Simulated scan of single mutants.
Amino acid sequence: MNTAAVKAYCLAKPEAQEDYPFGTDVQVFKIAGKMFALLSQRAGQPIVNLKCDPNQAFMLRDLFAAVQPGYHMNKKHWNTVLLDGSIPRGELERMIDHSYALVLKGLTKKLRQRLELQYPADSLYAGL
């Protein structure tokens, strides 16, 4: 997946919004004001930072050379994924789904319930 495909996939998530709180060179994707993906470049290489369950984060880092501890993020809960074409599209989409679902789970009960009434559960919690 290239940056345009990652951006499109993130924005297709229910209620996802794009923001630029860190400047124009870092696209931040949020649900209810909470970040689930950050798209930028590091040393000229496109990257995406994604939230991840700690156990899964370490497993993904072992499986894929393009998955590294979160750059400028909590390295226990975030991975940086190099968009170098080495990770299959379906796996990268699953990682985005997982990040989105983790952030969604952390929202207040009231916000979660509102979203759960509006959208099918599989579109919200596909990554869990």
Rank of each mutant, 00 (worst) to 15 (best):
K34G: 07
K30V: 00
H77P: 03
D97F: 02
S86Y: 02
L60G: 08
M1H: 12
K105P: 03
K109Y: 07
P21R: 00
A4H: 09
K76V: 14
A16E: 01
H72W: 07
G90E: 15
K105V: 00
S86K: 12
E116P: 05
P46I: 06
K13N: 07
H72K: 01
V81P: 00
I31R: 01
L102W: 09
D62L: 14
V103H: 00
R89Q: 15
A126G: 13
A4M: 10
E15V: 04
E91W: 11
L117C: 14
L60V: 05
S40E: 06
L38V: 09
Q17A: 11
I47Y: 03
Y100S: 10
A65M: 10
L83A: 11
D84C: 11
T108V: 03
M59E: 13
L111A: 14
M1Q: 08
M35N: 09
A8S: 09
L39M: 08
M73I: 03
N49E: 05
S123H: 12
L115A: 01
R89W: 08
L111M: 13
M35C: 03
L124G: 04
D84G: 08
K110C: 07
L63M: 13
M73F: 01
Q56K: 14
Q41H: 14
P120E: 11
Y100V: 11
L83H: 03
L11Q: 04
V28C: 08
F29S: 04
Q17D: 12
R94C: 10
Y119N: 01
L128F: 14
P120Q: 05
A101H: 02
H98G: 07
